[in-house]
Design a protein around this nucleic acid. Structure first.
Lengths: 185, 185
DNA sequence: CGATTGACTGACTGTCCAGTCACTTATACA
DNA sequence: TGTATAAGTGACTGGACAGTCAGTCAATCG
């Protein structure tokens, strides 16, 4: 069926979008994103129907990326909180732009409520690994989603500090888990 | 010195900006904001030099508003966490748009790092009231700013849940403080 | 090898909007 | 009451940008 679409190009566009949004915010022009991806402006629209569609797919892609990095190899361990945390923080330190872009997309209204919900669903994979810790702790009576959200909030805060004060990153990282641990125990 | 500027108009513009941004995001046109404020498009620019300037001032105004509401009457109490928390949460439930707008401004790049810093400084007024609780708790060794940020993060998460699930608002509110309390103790 | 399909290109268009400006009107002060 | 000053107005402009489209090119298949 004629010329097939190229995954490479699709990925190049997504990667270029991360760079562009990191620098210019969500108002980054599609023309710039396309150019930075080495693709004509028109081609961007054969891979993504509209700019909003690009943003939605980018959002989900980044969430998946983050969750995959954080949960890597953790699934079968007996004590999961610390390895999970350390993977998660490492991802944040290595890909600060991805995180910044994710944050912008999350609050913007470029993304529908449905897409946002799918994003939260992806996050559940990550928080599910806390299951055992949660089941017997102080928050066993509070709704699961609430616990998940608080975990996420503490993680995000910790990441902010690790990035803004790299000299004490290790210290902030520990302060983060310990605070979380105290909260869940 | 000729016709004086009117505080009423200035406030009307800020209030209209909240409504517009709540509905349309930061791309809300200045013309719409002005119209909704009952003012000509040109007049908006006699009160605020640029759209960005309007956003910056709005950001600071909203932060001040939030902090004032949360700290009202709490300054002299011996046990401050609970009244502070309840004021804070009440503000969030009463003015959900203000909160939404604040969140958008916070991550956007419409606002300079300097303005953001001033915003954080305003927040310190609020977190300072935890001083005594913090001074003897588990986080007494972690940097003050970090504790402040975590408190804020847990508060924001709690607000999200109170608003998205009003039937259990009271329950979420309690779960929030208790989690925080466990973390600080 | 055609022939067909659909990806690829980038100049172009229609729309939107921040900010301006020539003019009008209200206020302060002499 | 007259004059100076600055606020108020809204049609307008210049620039930016999402998305289109007519033409080109490459992969697949009979």
């Amino acid at each position: 069926m004629a010329r097939p679409r190229s995954d490479d190009k699709r990925n190049a566009i997504l990667a270029a979008a991360v760079r562009a949004i990191d620098r210019q915010g969500l108002r980054a022009p599609t023309a710039l994103i396309a150019k930075d991806a080495g693709v004509a402006t028109g081609s961007l629209f054969t891979y993504f129907e509209t700019k909003s569609a690009l943003f939605s797919e980018l959002y989900l892609e980044l969430k998946r990326d983050m969750v995959a990095a954080a949960t890597e190899g953790v699934r079968t361990l007996p004590e999961r909180l610390h390895p999970l945390w350390s993977n998660w923080m490492r991802w944040a330190v290595r890909f600060p732009q991805k995180r910044r872009v994710l944050a912008q997309l999350e609050v913007s209204d470029e993304i529908t409520a449905a897409t946002l919900a799918r994003g939260h669903q992806i996050m559940e994979d990550l928080v599910d690994l806390l299951g055992p810790a949660h089941a017997h702790g102080a928050m066993r009576e509070t709704p699961y989603a609430f616990v998940a959200a608080v975990v996420n909030a503490v993680a995000e805060t910790t990441m902010d500090f690790m990035l803004s004060d790299p000299a004490n990153a290790e210290r902030h990282c520990r302060a983060g888990v310990e605070a979380l641990s105290r909260m869940l125990t």
